[in-house]
Amino acid sequence: MDPVKFGYWFPADVSTHGPSVDLLIDYVHYLAVALFVGWGIFMLYCLIRFRQRPGHKAQYELPHFKGSKYAEVAVALIELVLLLGFSIPVWASIRYELPRTDAPDKVVVRCIAEQFAWYFWYPGPDGEFEPASADRIKPSNPLGLRDPSRDAVSKDEFHFPVNRPIVVYVTSRDVIHGFNIPLMRVKHDAVPGLNIPIWFQATKTNDEIFAAMSPERLRIGPALVGRKEPYIAMEAVKAADGSDLLKSGDTFVFGEALVKGLTGAGVQELSVKLKFPVELACAQLCGNGHSGMRAAVSIDTEEQFAAFIAGKMAK
């Protein structure tokens, strides 16, 4: 599995429900390709056999075609099977059969989208979400919680534990955004005024995905400045004066100084891996910063997740 290899078909999938989504997409495409090839061959055959040429005349009456009727009925039946056998039941199970409220291992998170950031809000040790009010919003308390020290809030970094059902209440406080994790086949609109729960479960941790992915060669240029996602260097780079600019294994963010240093050292491409290879993208046009509205997803082990929450609580 290499989640960075894209461009041919699906990306890798690290969710429990993802395989059924991919399976249906495959089946629908089998049907589509079969129909297209069938039509195509028939059409090409007709174009050659019935081309206008001396001595050839068109037929006014056609032979009675039964095949087309059978084909149409077959298409309708296949669609019925896809609909009743796959789409409706599986959709119902992944969208609406939420983990029971008393399921002991589920994690409940609230996701609040705004132009152009994602907030992930976890209850503190009491298991309760603090009341929030827009009037209390300030930089140190971005969600306007009554007592911000009692809950954990993470901006643009979404942590959750592996192999446990995660319930996310998705909403927005300004315009419509789209909560989308392509590698997990998770997508839902974040609509202001609605607070809709979705759920999913991951099958692999961030560390496993990181180890499986191959490095990517990133083109160095001014466009990288200001990107907030952390990378891990897969090669060492020395600056023009001989000092270490990056060591292999370094975690770094593309700042202005670093990009300048890399450019100064004549580096055009750099071998890196994303520290958090699973990405959360905004799927609905939400304004000028839409394409930059990205959050990192970290699928943690239990220990990592506990440490993450503890770290956020300590702040």
Binding site: P3, V4, K5, F6, G7, Y8, W9, F10, P11, I25, G178, N180, P182, L183, E216, L218, A223, R227, L274, P277, E279, A281, C282, A283, L285, N288, H290, S291, G292, R294
Partner: peptide, 26 residues
């Protein structure tokens, strides 16, 4: 194929995403 890779529409700069960079040649 870009859509299959998960690339969202209406992106001003799709190379922000690793799955966007993967299909940038397309």
């Amino acid at each position: 194929f870009m859509g299959m890779a998960g690339l969202n529409r209406r992106m001003y700069d799709q190379t922000v995403y690793v799955h966007g960079r993967g299909v940038q040649p397309l």
